[in-house]
Computed example of a mutant assay.
Amino acid sequence: MASYVFTLPFALGDKDAEILLARRQLIQTRSGGRTIRGRIPEWAGQWGLIGDAQGKGESAEATGIRAFREQAGLDLSDRDVQSNFMLHNRSLVSAETAEYTPFNVLCIFTTRGALQLAQSVVSDALGTEQVTEATLAEVEIRTVTSARNMLGPRRPPPKGWKSFLVQNYFGGTEPGAFNTEIDELTRLIATRAAQDNSFFAAALDGKAPR
Rank of each mutant, 00 (worst) to 15 (best):
E129K: 12
L185Q: 08
E18Q: 15
S146D: 15
V105E: 06
S146R: 14
E133R: 14
N168P: 00
P157T: 03
L117I: 07
F68A: 04
G55M: 10
T101R: 15
P41D: 01
A44P: 01
R148F: 14
E174Q: 14
P158D: 13
S120V: 07
A147E: 01
T7M: 00
P9A: 01
L76P: 01
T143S: 14
L26M: 15
A17Y: 03
I65C: 14
I27G: 01
R154L: 05
I182F: 14
A2G: 12
A118K: 11
D80S: 12
D80I: 10
P157F: 02
V131D: 00
S77K: 12
A98F: 14
F178K: 15
G171S: 08
D52C: 06
G64V: 01
A202S: 15
G33Y: 01
R90Y: 09
A17D: 00
L126I: 09
T111F: 05
P102K: 11
Q71C: 07
F200W: 12
K15V: 15
A177M: 13
L76M: 05
A202N: 04
T132V: 13
R79K: 08
Q46H: 10
L74H: 01
Q167S: 15
P102Q: 05
A44M: 06
Q116C: 11
F200A: 10
F103H: 04
P102N: 04
T63G: 05
L49V: 04
A62S: 14
E129Q: 11
N179P: 00
A72F: 07
T143Q: 01
P175T: 04
L136V: 09
V144N: 03
S59A: 05
T145R: 10
G45Y: 02
I141E: 06
V139S: 07
I141H: 08
N89R: 15
K56V: 11
N89M: 09
L74F: 05
I182S: 08
E42C: 06
R155D: 07
I141T: 14
G113D: 13
R69A: 15
S198Y: 05
H88S: 13
N149T: 13
G127A: 03
R69V: 08
S91I: 13
N197D: 13
V122D: 04
G64L: 02
E138V: 09
P156A: 15
A53F: 10
L115H: 13
T186H: 07
T97W: 05
G51S: 03
I108L: 11
K56H: 12
N179D: 15
G113W: 10
F200E: 08
L12A: 09
A202K: 06
T35R: 09
T97F: 01
F199R: 13
K159F: 08
K159G: 00
D78C: 10
S31H: 12
R90P: 00
L20W: 06
K159H: 10
V121Q: 07
E18F: 11
F164K: 05
E174D: 04
F68K: 08
A125T: 06
T35P: 04
V166L: 11
T35N: 11
F109M: 09
A62G: 03
A201I: 11
R192Y: 03
K162C: 01
G33A: 00
P156N: 05
T97A: 03
E70V: 11
P153M: 03
G73Y: 01
Q71L: 06
V122I: 15
V144S: 02
S163C: 07
T101I: 14
S146H: 13
